[in-house]
Simulated scan of single mutants.
Amino acid sequence: MIFNGLEFSLMKKEDISVLIPVMKRAFDDDARLFFQKTAGGPPGYDDGSFLEKWGVDSNAVSYRINLGERAIGAIILFIDDKQKHGFLGNLFIDSELIGKGYGYTAWCFVEHRYPQIAVWETETPAVSYRNHHFYINKCGFHVVAVEGGIDRYKAQFKLKKEICEKMT
């Protein structure tokens, strides 16, 4: 599916090897910027096991994101149609392309593709200020809770977005 210049295709096992370096760059960039580490991310972010577990082998709906022929990221969603609820499990864009609107385009694709979802939730580290700007200022999420104590390196922001019903 093409949406605003990006291609979204359902993630397959064969996509993992192409997405590993993209995911590694994205998370390592955050680790340097916000955690004062040279590398870091969720377990398995750098060997493909994260993408295999959550993007391919889970009950998630996952997409590889391409700009032309180039894989630039992925998005992992957990959709509950009965409850009209969605959880954004993961969204990453290659760190070389941050700030060019591709993450926002990916989120707009999600809302366009899943108009039946009334409530979206996600979470992000409390220290990841760039993520806060993206989710809150760009995508319209609100912080609904902070979990994990007062240590900003361990705390997580819980975010929620309620979609208003469209007037016809």
Rank of each mutant, 00 (worst) to 15 (best):
I98V: 14
S62P: 05
F27M: 07
E96K: 14
Y63G: 00
T124V: 06
N4F: 02
D28G: 07
I136C: 08
V143C: 15
G5H: 01
T38G: 11
Y114W: 04
K82A: 07
K37C: 03
K161N: 06
G5Y: 00
G44D: 14
V127Y: 13
L19I: 00
E52I: 00
K53V: 03
F109V: 00
D151M: 06
N90M: 12
S17D: 14
P21N: 12
V22D: 00
Q156G: 09
M167N: 13
H132K: 09
V127M: 12
R152Y: 14
E162P: 06
F92Y: 08
R25G: 04
I75F: 02
L51A: 01
A155L: 05
F157R: 15
A118Q: 10
N131V: 02
K138T: 05
V22C: 02
G99D: 04
P125A: 13
I79P: 13
T38Y: 11
K154R: 13
P21Y: 08
D94M: 04
A118Y: 06
A39E: 10
K24N: 05
A118E: 09
I93R: 10
A155N: 10
R130K: 06
G48E: 15
F27Q: 10
H112G: 09
V143A: 15
V119Y: 13
M11W: 00
D47T: 00
I93H: 09
G103T: 01
K158T: 02
P125V: 09
H85C: 04
G149A: 11
C108R: 08
S17Q: 09
W54I: 01
Y129H: 10
L10G: 03
W107M: 14
K160D: 03
F157H: 13
V18G: 06
F87C: 14
